[in-house]
Simulated scan of single mutants.
Amino acid sequence: MIKIYAPASIGNVGVGFDILGAAIIPIDGTLLGDFVTIKLSKKFTLVNKGIFSNQLPADTEQNIVWKCWLRFSRVIKKNISVSIVLEKNMPIGSGLGSSACSIVATLVAMNELFNKPLNSKELLLLMGEMEGEISGSIHYDNVAPSYFGGLQLILEDSEIINQKIPHFKNWFWIIAWPGIKVSTSAARNILPKKYTKEICIKNSRYLSGFIHALYSQQPDLAARLMQDVIAEPYRTKLLPNFLQAKEKIKKIGAISFGISGSGPTIFSITDNISIAQKISLWLKKNYLQNQTGFVHICFLDSQGVRKIG
């Protein structure tokens, strides 16, 4: 029996639409993500557990874990029966890479169970393909950080899909999920089909400057350049009181603020723990919409997917 954990992630990281992704872990060491436990069996079974298991489709064949098992079996050309338990701890449509958590944990578990027939690149390509099943297009900004950890730059070069890039280890990332759902496809459909030349240049300047600031270890410059001109101007209408929250959290002392993936989760950054705690408290009181919502102060998780036990 094999048990695998895959962490939650922040897609886009504000400035890097579909190009950047970061794995996260709460500073208290709590594992924020999904678990998959797998073993050989006489027939395929899938049991859903966890806080958000009630959000999963009732039909097993609509579950992304079943789809991952089927696709993996076809890739390695073996029809293998397994028993899988999915512990669904990430809310669906949260902007925290919920589907990526399940995909990464399942495919890594399958690969481990069958003595690693696929290498890491083959596995990542498969993860991107399965992510495309849900969002409608292949993208790696959640699966890559959940798999490899840290802050990932998605290259999609013919030889290299992604690379881990530096990050500031003293940054606290405060994430807040308000307890409501925003579908990835709806959040993508709200974006314009075309952007002006000026916006394209501005986005290139912010993104290239941000990556330069990471490599040259200029945290203040990096924070200032974390500006999203591609998605945030359009997606704010899908999020509760986004602009008011942004203004208030900047006043409290955040050095950066943005939408995690497609939203509605938001993230803010500070290098000061007392400011992080103040931001966390404000978000709990003012951004959460119901009892299921949550706020966590996080670091970036440099480890990524891992075997448990």
Rank of each mutant, 00 (worst) to 15 (best):
Q218I: 01
Q277E: 14
R188T: 07
F52D: 03
P91D: 12
S41Q: 09
V229S: 04
I76A: 12
R71N: 13
F52S: 05
E198F: 01
K251H: 08
S53P: 08
K246Q: 13
I190Q: 04
R188H: 14
N170H: 12
E61I: 07
Y206R: 06
E247D: 13
Y5D: 07
C200E: 11
A187F: 11
N54T: 06
V182Q: 01
G209W: 01
S268H: 01
T106Y: 06
I199D: 04
I252V: 13
A105K: 01
V295I: 09
M110E: 03
K49N: 13
T270D: 12
D228N: 11
S302G: 13
I199G: 06
F17N: 07
K285W: 06
G50W: 05
M127D: 00
H296F: 15
L20Q: 10
G261M: 04
C101S: 14
N142T: 09
S81G: 08
S83A: 06
Q62M: 11
Q277F: 06
I175A: 00
E159H: 04
D220R: 03
K88R: 08
I199W: 11
L126V: 08
T106S: 14
I25Q: 15
L238F: 00
V143N: 13
L153Y: 12
E87D: 14
P219A: 13
W171L: 09
Y234M: 10
S73I: 12
N115A: 09
S256N: 04
L281Y: 09
I165D: 07
F148R: 10
G95N: 03
N79W: 10
C298F: 11
T196W: 08
K194N: 15
V229C: 09
L126R: 05
A254Q: 06
A144M: 14
Q55R: 11
L113C: 06
A58N: 02
E159F: 01
K285M: 10
T37N: 02
I138S: 08
S83D: 04
R306K: 15
N170F: 10
R235D: 03
L214S: 07
K43N: 11
I2F: 12
I279H: 00
S302T: 13
Q244P: 03
W173E: 09
K197V: 12
T30Q: 14
C200P: 07
S41A: 15
Q244E: 15
R74S: 12
Q152Y: 02
Y215V: 15
N79Q: 15
I174H: 02
I201K: 15
S280K: 06
S102L: 11
I266F: 05
P233R: 05
S268W: 00
P166I: 09
G14R: 01
I84E: 01
V108A: 15
T184W: 00
D18L: 02
S158G: 09
N54P: 03
E198Q: 13
F114R: 03
S99P: 01
A245C: 11
N12A: 10
P192M: 14
I273F: 01
A186C: 06
L107Y: 00
